[in-house]
Design a protein around this nucleic acid. Structure first.
Lengths: 206, 206
DNA sequence: TTGACCAACCTAACACTGTTAGGTATCGTT
DNA sequence: AACGATACCTAACAGTGTTAGGTTGGTCAA
């Protein structure tokens, strides 16, 4: 009977840890994120956290999973658009919007190697993996509709080209935002024009 | 008279440090790079290095500058191609080749925020800055030749779109190379097709 | 030649980091 | 009421970048 209370409590603590982690990440950035700081934020020592998460990467992975899942859900809403090419265009824009709103999340997710799998949890599928699958699915649909130029036949190749295009501008902005020697144009506007250009170059003129 | 010997010696030591740094970086990656390890490689303690470089970032910046300068020189050789659009295409390919040959360098240069300026040295201009300027220059030339679609008028915007496209695929490959859930297509081939598509989307059909 | 200086290194230490071993107290169950 | 697990703790290890302060030896002016 009261065993459920304990489970309840653990869920609550886990949630509190993730909330604190989000705060620390936002306040101190990826590099300033430490287990001791995280623990202090909820009145724990650093080691206390290890009872709820395997290690530092486990915490971060869980946080990223949770938050990226929201983005993935947002992508789903786009799924209603009929024209797959138009859907791709909108997906790109949503992607950029998510990335620039959660720069530290994005940096950890897509600009840092070796954020290894956390296999303890239920994990219910990596949301990033799922997002790639969603992109690939849309590409496949567009492929079937004959929307792409005839030299493009491979869904993975196309997906990676499109993903690469989106990711490039975003990650450069995140990494090099403060470099004085590049006069950055507004990210979203620039991306929209790049997106259009890339899609135009991939598809057949109608 | 002997003062030059000392200068000579310091230059020599500095060179040895950078050589060792290159080795450590290649062997242990960015994360495994430590001052103590670097010192040990040339029979110094970690602190000994601080007599030749301001701090860890200073060492890395100097190493990156030196090695990236070679790439920049390679870009210069491309400068001979007459058609600016064709030159852009070749520059992209050279960029990808450099990046995939020096992944750790690339990661530090373009995927890591805040590799702050080292202002002590002669620095003779950031080679990365110079590379961007070189790209911009070529774009300006193509712009003047009327090669781009009429809606593209801004050299910085165009430069950033092109740079973003190149950088995207490369950096995704570096960051997510070992992710099992994305069946990576060969980088160089995929890039070539993306490059073509993007250029096609940016330029007027001839 | 001697005295002073200064460059180039060193050791020791500080304040951090992630992580583990092992102790303690509280709580649910029997 | 006694047991045992759970949820936390303290202490410690091995590592990090960096600084303060010492030591040694070569350079240079008197």
């Amino acid at each position: 009977m009261h065993a459920v209370d304990r489970e309840e409590h653990n869920r609550e603590v886990k949630r509190k840890i993730l909330d604190a982690a989000r705060e620390v990440l936002l306040a101190d950035g990826v590099d300033g994120f430490s287990m001791r700081k995280l623990g202090a934020k909820i009145g724990y020592t650093a080691t206390g956290i290890y009872h709820h998460f395997a290690d530092k990467q486990g915490v971060l992975k869980a946080l990223l999973d949770a938050d990226f899942k929201a983005f993935r859900a947002g992508l789903g809403r786009i799924g209603k658009i009929d024209d797959p090419i138009e859907r791709l265009r909108k997906m790109g824009i949503a992607y950029v919007e998510f990335a620039s709103a959660h720069q530290d999340h994005y940096r950890l997710l897509f600009m840092t190697p070796q954020l290894k799998q956390v296999d303890g949890e239920i994990t219910c599928g990596d949301p990033a993996e799922d997002a790639y699958a969603f992109l690939r699915e849309t590409v496949t649909e567009a492929l079937a509709a004959g929307a792409f130029r005839p030299e493009f036949k491979d869904a993975d190749e196309l997906s990676q080209i499109i993903w690469g295009g989106v990711h490039g501008l975003v990650s450069l902005h995140i990494a090099k935002a403060n470099d004085p020697w590049v006069p950055w144009k507004p990210l979203k506007a620039t991306f929209r024009r790049m997106n259009d250009a890339l899609i135009r170059g991939l598809t057949v003129a109608e």
